[in-house]
Computed example of a mutant assay.
Amino acid sequence: MTAPIETTGSAAGAQPEAVLAGAKRSQIEGRSLYQIAWLRFRRDRVAVAGGIVVILLVLLAALAKPIESVFGLDPNAFHQDLVDPSLLAPKGSWGGMSWEHPLGVDPQYGRDILARIIEGSWVSLLVATGATVLSVVLGTVLGVVAGFYGGWVDSVISRMMDTFLAFPLLLFAISISASLQDGAFGFSGLPLRIGVLIFVIGFFNWPYMGRIVRAQTLSLREREFVEAARSLGARGPFILFRELLPNLVAPILVYSTLLIPTNILFEAALSFLGVGIAPPQASWGGMLTSATGLYQADPQYMIVPGLAIFVTVLAFNLLGDGLRDALDPRSK
């Protein structure tokens, strides 16, 4: 008969508390879902690059006025001496590029393109962000109510979504924007146009967010934690705001980042058609409008704002794809 193995004083015979006492906190500390999502996101270099570009664009838009004042940039200053009136093209090569005008000047009035790109950044991002916030708020509230309560509430809200989706949005936006150009609700000029664009784009795009939130809510309302909350006596509003909405943050955040570039393109399209931001206020879509008849003489005037829109939309799409992969619990 073999003797029993002596384990006194060894790691095998130690109590769990003693073993954990010798371990570092970083070795035993758990990670939350947001920490895991952040680690996943950091591994996606393309999404990180998109996020960096988005941050730089937001800083550029927020600091557009200080940047213009510090560097002496005036987006509406005319430099007729830099334009050849017979050819309607900037003097010199590469669109009139120089140390004073790094991106050249426009072929009509000689206005600095860099200054107008910086000035147009805050207009595009303000309209797109405001419209996205309006769409997200309306879509989230109505979508979660429709998905949670069901029945006639779901039927009414769902038919409302179908009605909004049936509208020819572009034609409707053109008609509203054109009819409110002179003044309305005590506002006029640029504040009115920005407010109208935010309302038109955001108010008529909320059903897209509403459908996503409704579908997610229909799945979540049958989960165990919702049943547990009901068994403890929780009422509808408590379950909506304390149980369902925190679990809807991930899809809402991901879709919001994908909705912003769509709204940027929508604002550019309305400005391109002449019912968005009115000149002389700089906007990326307005710059493309004025470049349509001049692209043969100076293609750079169309390429620069087109690249600005392209880079912005691409950066937001890459960021949205990265957030979707990082916040998806089924991703590897």
Rank of each mutant, 00 (worst) to 15 (best):
M1D: 14
T2H: 09
T7V: 11
A18L: 13
A18W: 09
A23T: 12
A37V: 12
R40M: 12
R42I: 08
R45M: 15
V53I: 13
L56P: 06
L59I: 08
A64F: 13
P66L: 04
V70Y: 14
V70K: 03
A77S: 12
F78K: 15
H79T: 06
V83S: 00
P85H: 10
W94P: 03
M97P: 02
W99T: 13
R111K: 14
R116G: 00
R116C: 01
W122C: 01
S124N: 02
S124L: 03
T132L: 02
V141Q: 10
A146L: 09
S158M: 11
R159L: 03
M161H: 10
D162V: 03
L165R: 05
F167P: 13
S175R: 03
S177V: 00
Q181E: 12
S188W: 09
L192W: 11
G202D: 00
G202P: 01
F204E: 02
P207K: 00
G210W: 04
S219Y: 12
R223G: 14
R230M: 04
I239H: 04
V254K: 00
L259V: 10
L259R: 14
P261D: 02
P261L: 00
I264G: 01
F272E: 02
L273R: 09
L273G: 05
G274A: 06
G274I: 03
I277R: 01
L288P: 04
N317E: 08
N317I: 02
L318K: 08
L319W: 01
D321L: 05
L323Y: 05
D325Y: 05
R330S: 11
